[in-house]
Computed example of a mutant assay.
Amino acid sequence: MSRIGVKPISVPAGVEVTVADGNVVTVKGPKGTLTKSFNKDMIIKSENGTVTVARPTEDKFHKSLHGLTRTLIFNMVEGVTNGFSKTLEIVGVGYRAQKQGKNLVMNLGFSHQVIVPETDDIKIDVPQPNQIVVSGIDKQAVGQFACEIREKRPPEPYKGKGIRYTGEYIIRKEGKAGKGSKK
């Protein structure tokens, strides 16, 4: 039995979960509304302030969907209640970011500035010139947007310069050994 899939999801006050035909789940909360369609085989019920997910058979495919469906619905409820955020750090001499209107403008050692526009569901904040905070209600969209910002200048292994997630460990390489050291 799935240990995650059988847990009921408690719906906090102020959040409304509706399950329509075809397993289309809509979650409305104080931060916004999320809608997602799930596999038609899964049994999703919303009653008495809890949401439960069950599977029709012990088939391997249904087992794999059980925990996934429950986790995705839980993340929807969490997103409209508290939201999600990812923090990125910029490391390097002269590397910095700033917010200009709805655009994130970054100096990353290129001959030009890198400009990333803010979207409707993703908000960008720059509390310090070397820190970027990406936030929103959809966990997948926040992670994808943070990944796209990180791709602009991924951390390099010799000096560690670039954009990285806060707390991310970069495997460092040793530089050249120098002339005359191989004898």
Score class of each variant (00 low, 15 high):
Lys183Ala: 07
Pro129Val: 02
Met76Phe: 05
Asn23Trp: 08
Cys147Asp: 02
Gly167Arg: 02
Ile122Ser: 01
Lys63Val: 11
Asn107Thr: 15
Leu72Glu: 14
Val126Gly: 03
Gly136Glu: 09
Gly83Val: 07
Lys31Leu: 15
Asn107Tyr: 10
Ile122Lys: 03
Val126Asp: 07
Asp41Pro: 02
Gly49Met: 08
Gly178His: 01
Gln98Met: 05
Tyr169Gly: 09
Gly94Glu: 14
Thr26Pro: 01
Arg164Ala: 10
Lys159Ile: 13
Tyr95Trp: 12
Ser2Tyr: 01
His112Cys: 04
Lys45Glu: 11
Tyr165Pro: 00
Glu118Tyr: 03
Thr81His: 05
Gln140Ile: 10
Arg96Thr: 11
Val24Asn: 01
Ile115Phe: 00
Gly101Arg: 00
Val134Cys: 03
Pro117Cys: 02
Tyr95Ala: 12
Gly14Cys: 12
Pro30Glu: 13
Arg3Tyr: 12
Glu148Gly: 06
Val142Glu: 06
Glu47Lys: 15
Phe61Met: 12
Ser37Gly: 10
Asp59Pro: 00
Gly32Met: 04
Val80Phe: 02
Lys159Leu: 14
Tyr169Asn: 14
His112Leu: 01
Phe61Thr: 14
Lys123Asp: 00
Gly178Asp: 00
Arg55Lys: 15
Val105His: 04
Met76Arg: 03
Gly175Lys: 13
Asn130Arg: 13
Val15Cys: 08
Leu65Val: 05
Gly92His: 07
Pro12Ile: 02
Pro154Gln: 01
Ser46Leu: 11
Asn130Met: 08
Asn107Asp: 15
Glu78Trp: 06
Phe84Ser: 04
Ile73Cys: 12
Gly22Lys: 09
Thr35Glu: 13
Gly29Thr: 08
Ile137Thr: 09
Ala13Trp: 01
Val93Lys: 15
Pro129Asp: 11
Thr33Ala: 01
Gln113Leu: 15
Leu65Arg: 12
Ile73Gln: 13
Arg70Pro: 05
Gly22Thr: 08
Ala97Ser: 15
